[in-house]
Amino acid sequence: MKATIYDVAKEAGVSIATVSHVINGKGKISRERREEITRIMVRMGYKPSMIASALTGKKTYALGLLVPDISNPFFAEIARAVEDEGQRHGYSVFICSTDNKDEKVEHYAELLRQKNVDGVIIGTGMKELTVLDPLLNGGVPIAFLSREFPTAKVPSVVVDDYAGGAAAAEHLIALGHRRLAVLAEEESVSSSRERVRGFRQTLAAAGIALDQTDVRMSGLKESMDRALELLGRADRPTAIFCCNDMLAIGALRAAKELGLRIPRDCSIVGFDDTVLASVTDPPLTTVAQPIDRMGQAAVQVLVRLIEQPEARSERIVLPPALSIRQSSAAWAGNR
């Protein structure tokens, strides 16, 4: 039998009105007491009627999360972190995969507005900010996660992508690599642009050129083909920096297809440090993102915005960390 508001009130030792105030974010109730009652609601499985709340203009205790592809381990781990933190605050989460396509972003933005969600976390790439108009014009609070849009005054939680790209470059330079290439995501993905920028500028500071032909844009499905193009050249790179771990796995597959030994014939460095990075063959050197902290921070920022609409926009930048495994080594020419 489903728990009711009466059951929650009895368990918490408060009135029904107090539980209602907690649900709707009203009343003079301490933060500690609100969190205690919210935990009781979660434990008892009590869910206020979303339809009834929407019809009365009250909170629905639902959030939206837009990601490019939930099958990508990075976004699967992000989604879990968001879901867990959302639940801690009493929110359910709708997860939508957009494939980084503006038309899908716009479709889901309108759908979530119609569902009267209390806020939306944007973790997807987009070419035009206008695709979020259904949310922005509808007064729905939003926060960016692992993405940014310079012209938007919207709170964001990101890793220092530039520093991550720079760290990958420094690692490969220290190993003696001078002929390098990059597998990047689509231009609409701001995090990938920053990683490439950090990588390129660090190489330039060391006197190493990275031509535009050395940078290949790729979706996940085409990553092996783009890596084959790079590794099949007469002047093939001795190292490839991949802007996420899934692209790096495509590069590992391409190397195997060509009979190349990793890292002896080519070093490969990824970005994310998902669960897959430690089980590839060989295990993947990658720039680690603090995935759990990112998901938690995005929910916390959005909840603050929901509760305090006039609050100043926050930009939280978390540091990356290079995780060195067996897919990178000194260039054979230096041995």
Rank of each mutant, 00 (worst) to 15 (best):
R216L: 10
D235P: 03
I268P: 01
R216C: 08
A168Y: 00
G250E: 10
S218I: 08
I262L: 08
V189K: 03
R147Y: 05
A206R: 11
E170I: 09
L180T: 08
E186W: 07
A254W: 02
D225L: 09
F149H: 15
P283D: 08
G259V: 05
V182D: 07
K256D: 15
G270N: 10
E257M: 04
A234F: 15
P150I: 05
E187S: 01
A227Y: 13
A166C: 01
L203Y: 12
R236W: 06
R233C: 11
D161T: 02
R179Q: 15
L260A: 05
L258H: 12
A167R: 00
R226Q: 11
A167L: 10
C242H: 07
V215G: 02
A167T: 00
V182W: 03
S278D: 08
H177V: 10
G176A: 01
L231Y: 12
V154M: 12
G232P: 03
E222N: 15
D245K: 11
E257I: 01
V279Q: 09
P263D: 13
L231P: 06
S218M: 11
H171P: 02
T202S: 12
V159P: 05
Q212L: 04
D281L: 08
M217G: 13
L210C: 02
A168M: 02
S190C: 07
M224S: 04
T151P: 01
L175D: 04
T238Q: 05
A163W: 04
L203R: 09
A184F: 00
R178K: 14
S156G: 07
N244C: 06
G176C: 06
G270E: 05
T151W: 04
V154E: 04
E194Q: 15
